[in-house]
Every structure is written in C-alpha cells, then in structure tokens.
Amino acid sequence: MIRSRKLRYSLLLLGSVMALGAIIAEDRTRLLERSLFQANQAREDKAPDGSLWLADYHAVRQAQPIEGISDDLSALTYDPQSKTLFSLTNQREKLVQLSLDGKVLRTIPLSGFDDPEAVEYVGPGTFVVADERNLRLHLIKVGDDTRAIDAAQGRQLTLEGDSGGNKGLEGSAYDPSTDTLFLAKERDPLQIFEVNGFTRDGQAGQASVTANPARDGGLFVSDLSSLFFHAPTGHLFALSDESGVLLELDEHGQPVSSLSLSEGEHGLDEDVPQAEGVTMDAEGNIYLVSEPNLFYVFSKRQG
C-alpha cells in the first residue's frame, strides 16, 4: 500500500514537472517569435500597405497618475460623440469617464455586475460591459444625466465555457460595419471570441459566438488584456500585459506591426507596469491605461 502511494505520488510529480516544462518551453518559443518579429520590424524602412504601423508611434504622455482613481483601473474605449474615454474600476465597481488628457470627468456607480473588466463603445450612448469571471455581457445606456447603472436594466448574454477563474474576459473591441464584438479571454487558453447580433436593437436572442483557433494560436504573447478595432484598416489590435506589447493584426489575424511597452522603446522612460486598457481616437492617437491608475498617450511621428 505504501509503495502504491509512493508510485502515485511519483507519477503526479513527474506529470507536474512535465507540464511545467511544456509551459516554460511554450513561453520561450513565444518570446523568440516576438523578438524575431520586432527585429524584422526595426529593419523595415517603410510601413506595409494598409497598415497603421505601430513602429512609428512614440509616447507623448506617460505614467501620468489619474487623480481621483487610486487603484484597479481596467479597460478603455473611445466615445466619438463626446470625444472622451470610458474606463472601469472593478473592485468598487464604477464606470469612469475621462478627458483625452487623462482627467476624471465623472464616475458612475455600477450594480449587479460581477467583476467587470472590459467596456466598449458600440453606438451613441451605448456600451457593452464584460464580466470576467462569469463570461457575461451587458448592453448598457449612458446619457449625460446618468447617475447609476443597474445591470438588470440592460440586455445580457452569457458565453458558454469556463472562464478559468480570474483568467476570463479581459478586453473588447467592436467593428460596426459587421456588428462584430471581439472579446479577449486572458489565457488558459488565450482566445478572441467574435459575437454577432448582440449589440443592435431587434436582435436579442439571435447572437452567435465563434472563435478562430488558427489566429489565436499564432499570437506570440502569453496573455491578452485589451483590444481595439481600427475601422480604416480593418485591423484588430491586441494588448498583452505579461508580454509588454501591443500588436496590430491584419484581416487574417496575422501580426503586421507591434509597439513595445518596455523602457527605452517608443520614447518610454520606464516599462509600463501593468497595461490593462487601450483604444484609439479619431485622430489616430493611442490611449493606454495601466494599473494602478496610470495614463499614457502615443502619437504617430509625422514625416
């Protein structure tokens, strides 16, 4: 009996060591692929046709603390109607409206949500908030006079599957031309879901959810923390906190450019500590927030 228990313990230990070795090997492979991609990008003398080309971006505002927010800042989206940004705090749950220079304009308490981690503008006064742990989407309305938001008052959709605890939905993006909502699952496995038919009136109950394993398997990052969609190019942008990089993905899901979030890259004085949200305005400026409460802006060099 003792020998049998020892054998089971040895097999479990061997299995754990092999699994850990596989994870380390996979992370090293991703790091090598990312390093080679960034080295090749540095050698390019011009942007590929149809690319936004993140290599040309540099930090014009960095590590600016957002006054009035002490911690837990997560997600970012641009509202073209008000020309402001919206973010979330997910512990004391609030929707936060920011100016383009990182000032808090107002905070709106949220109730009935479960760990909100992503917010996305999908139309005038309309946003989608994603709960990380229960994989639930909420369609909410936000007006100039909105003082509080109750999840029960809006449309909801729960995605099937296991969130993996604190490794569920972390980012979102929206393509209005196809009514496609992109949702990033952080990791284990890293995935980008595509949801159609949820955001527009009259389509409740007709939503479909698809995935693209070929695209997701080709992403050389270890996690996903945010997304945004760039309509002029039709490209999706994926932010990774752990890998410290923003990727531009073409219409086939292939990386075409990247922006490193490491010290010394793109004018950064220090590493971005924990990148949690990214978006872009109508002028092509990229906005990024990092926990606990830091604000960044990247602009494209002219000429």
Rank of each mutant, 00 (worst) to 15 (best):
143 G>Y: 03
166 N>G: 02
118 A>I: 00
279 T>S: 08
236 L>F: 12
174 Y>I: 03
275 A>D: 04
126 T>K: 06
285 N>P: 05
85 L>Q: 08
7 L>Y: 09
293 N>E: 08
208 S>H: 07
10 S>V: 00
279 T>Y: 05
64 Q>H: 09
135 L>D: 00
143 G>D: 14
196 N>R: 14
62 Q>P: 10
132 E>T: 02
39 A>L: 13
2 I>C: 13
206 Q>K: 15
182 F>T: 01
181 L>I: 00
221 V>D: 11
41 Q>K: 12
106 R>K: 15
303 G>E: 05
244 G>E: 11
134 N>D: 14
251 E>T: 11
198 F>L: 01
228 F>V: 04
69 I>Y: 04
126 T>Q: 08
237 F>Q: 07
258 S>N: 08
191 Q>E: 15
183 L>H: 00
68 G>S: 08
267 G>I: 14
286 I>C: 02
216 D>I: 10
122 V>K: 00
56 D>A: 14
141 K>W: 09
279 T>N: 04
207 A>H: 09
25 A>P: 00
106 R>W: 05
256 V>W: 14
180 T>R: 02
38 Q>G: 00
224 L>P: 11
218 G>C: 10
301 R>H: 08
298 F>V: 02
44 E>C: 10
200 R>K: 13
23 I>H: 11
127 F>Y: 09
199 T>D: 01
186 E>L: 02
226 S>I: 13
28 R>A: 06
111 S>P: 11
138 H>E: 00
205 G>Y: 04
263 E>K: 15
12 L>Q: 13
146 T>E: 04
189 P>T: 10
126 T>E: 02
1 M>C: 06
251 E>Q: 09
206 Q>V: 11
259 L>N: 03
273 P>V: 06
45 D>G: 11
28 R>K: 10
146 T>I: 10
179 D>C: 03
187 R>K: 15
171 G>Y: 01
92 R>Q: 08
274 Q>E: 09
250 D>G: 09
208 S>F: 03
178 T>P: 05
15 G>C: 13
43 R>T: 13
250 D>K: 09
112 G>I: 06
205 G>M: 05
129 V>M: 01
90 N>L: 03
107 T>Q: 15
